[in-house]
């Protein structure tokens, strides 16, 4: 009688004995959703190049995944991913990082590459705080919450709609899920991998240690329950007014468009220019 073996342990780097997340962290669920999507598409880790920045969510591909990974400087994973995609056009590039990395510090890279619509998958784990460095207030921290850096409560307006920003910038696929929807998240990641264009998935993820416990929101289970109660599908949300949607999390595939993709455009332009150049320097030699 053989013992059961976890089907996704083969994707984990052999030197990694355990994940580096706190107990109950949502990033582990996101990691498994990514692995499920890759396995579900019958793809291999060699088809991918993962890029991550700095933060808790950046620990998902590096060192957990047994693949080619770039662990880059703070806020710059999309800039690195852009370079990789331009050089290795046949590879799938996936950026996995947190809200503090992609939106707060590397915000302009996110906007500009969504505008370029370059083919890559960006998964943003949004836990609403700078978790790894000790629970400082991030732009995504809700107003009035007491954090390490704001002992009397945050006084800044919260960055509510990251997905909205990426939609406005011109990405061709945008989805938002919470860690309470791992099955739907896996389906969206599958679509995002196959999408020709900039695919952005925002995952609202629980941080039970820095966010939940310190702010009195509760542990991992209470936070998951809260996501379950607050989330509303995009189809349902369209029927409701703005006031009714206050405090709710709109989940679903928000945008799925077909737009000109940058790598394809560059290749076409290069062919066009090369064709012209070859004709111009034709010396008659074979």
């Amino acid at each position: 009688m053989s013992e059961l073996v976890h089907p996704y342990h083969r994707f984990i780097r052999p030197t990694v004995t355990h994940s580096s997340f706190c107990p109950g962290c949502g990033d582990g669920t996101i990691a498994q959703s990514i692995l499920r999507a890759i396995d579900g598409l019958d793809m291999d880790m060699d088809d991918f190049v993962f890029v991550s920045g700095i933060g808790c969510a950046a620990w998902i591909p590096s060192p957990l995944f047994n693949a080619d990974v770039l662990h880059t400087t703070h806020g710059r994973p999309i800039a690195f991913a852009f370079g990789i995609k331009m050089g290795l056009t046949e590879k799938k590039v996936m950026v996995v990082s947190g809200d503090g990395d992609l939106v707060a510090i590397g915000g302009n890279h996110l906007i500009q590459n969504a505008r370029r619509n370059i083919e890559m998958v960006v998964i943003c784990s949004n836990n609403g705080i700078y978790g790894m460095t000790g629970g400082q207030a991030a732009p995504t921290t809700p107003m009035g919450v007491k954090t390490t850096t704001t002992p009397y409560g945050t006084f800044e307006n919260v960055f509510e709609d990251i997905s909205g920003l990426v939609i406005a910038a011109g990405a061709s696929f945008v989805a938002r899920w919470t860690t309470g929807h791992p099955r739907q998240l896996t389906a969206s990641i599958k679509k995002a991998i196959q999408k020709k264009g900039f695919a952005f998935i925002e995952v609202i993820s629980q941080c039970p240690v820095q966010f939940g416990r310190k702010m009195g929101v509760g542990n991992a289970v209470q936070m998951l329950e809260d996501y379950k109660n607050r989330s509303i599908s995009i189809q349902e949300a369209k029927k409701l007014s703005k006031e009714e949607l206050k405090g709710r999390i709109v989940v679903g595939e928000l945008v799925d468009l077909d737009k000109p993709e940058m790598v394809e455009e560059v290749t076409r332009m290069r062919k066009k220019a090369m064709g012209g150049a070859e004709a111009a320097v034709d010396t008659g030699r074979s």
Binding site: E3, T17, P23, G24, V221, L224
Partner: peptide
């Protein structure tokens, strides 16, 4: 063959995490 298996050394606790129980 068993239906379930828990990797005890990977688990981070039913008290601290407890998502499986939920």
């Amino acid at each position: 063959m068993a239906t379930l298996r828990i990797y005890n050394e990977l688990c981070k606790g039913a008290e601290e995490c407890g998502i499986c129980l939920y």
